[in-house]
C-alpha cells in the first residue's frame, strides 16, 4: 500500500473512532447537563438481534388529553411542558414547535405526533440484560428516569420498577 493510501486508511479509522467518541460525548453531555424528570410509563418486552432484550416504553404524557384544544397534524413536532407533581412529572401544556418556552426555566420535552394520536419522544426503548425484561413487563408501577436537555431532547437514564430502581 502506498504512503498516501496508508494515510487515508488510518485517517478513515481515526474518523470512525472519533465518530464513536463523539456519539458518546453528545449523549453523555445531554444526560449530564439535562434536567432529570420521572415519567409514568408502561412496558412491553421484545428483542433486537443487534442490541438484545429491551422494553418498549410508553408514557402517560404521550397521549394528548381530549380537553386540550390542538391543531397538530401527524408528523408535527409537539412541545410538552412538564411540571413536578411529586412522584412523577406531568404534562401541563402541549405547544407547537414555534412556541418553545425557552429561558423561563420551564422543563419541556419535544416529540412528534404519530398517526395513532400519541407523541413519540424518541425514548421508547430501554435495553436490559438478557432474560431480565420480564421484571419490567410484570411491574405494577413503572416510572422512567429521563434526562431532558434545554432543547427538549430526552434520554432514558433508568427505570423505577414498583418503587425501586431497576438493577438486574
Amino acid at each position: 500500500m502506498s504512503r498516501g493510501l496508508t494515510i487515508i486508511f488510518f485517517s478513515i479509522v481515526a474518523v470512525q473512532m472519533v465518530g464513536l467518541v463523539a456519539f458518546v460525548a453528545v449523549k453523555q453531555y445531554a444526560v449530564a447537563t439535562g434536567t432529570e424528570v420521572i415519567l409514568q410509563g408502561a412496558p412491553v418486552d421484545p428483542r433486537s438481534l443487534m442490541q438484545g432484550d429491551y422494553a418498549i416504553l410508553d408514557y402517560e404524557i404521550a397521549g394528548i388529553p381530549k380537553d386540550v384544544k390542538t391543531e397538530f397534524a401527524v408528523g408535527d413536532d409537539v412541545i410538552v411542558v412538564l411540571t413536578n407533581k411529586g412522584e412523577a412529572w406531568e404534562a401541563i401544556r402541549y405547544l407547537d414547535d414555534d412556541r418553545v418556552p425557552k429561558g423561563n426555566g420551564e422543563v419541556f420535552v419535544r416529540g412528534q405526533l404519530q398517526s395513532n394520536g400519541r407523541i413519540d419522544f424518541g425514548i421508547g426503548t430501554y435495553f436490559v440484560p438478557e432474560g431480565t425484561g420480564w421484571r419490567i413487563e410484570r411491574a405494577h408501577d413503572l416510572k422512567i428516569r429521563v434526562s431532558v436537555s434545554d432543547d427538549g431532547d430526552a434520554t432514558v437514564t433508568g427505570v423505577i420498577v414498583d418503587g425501586e430502581d431497576f438493577s438486574p
Partner: peptide, 18 residues
C-alpha cells in the same frame, strides 16, 4: 466491531431500537 460499537453506544444510551 465498529458497527457493533455503534449499536453498543446506542444501547448504553437507550437510543430507540432500530
Amino acid at each position: 466491531v465498529y458497527g457493533a460499537s455503534i449499536h453498543l453506544i446506542a444501547q448504553a444510551f437507550n437510543v430507540e431500537v432500530n
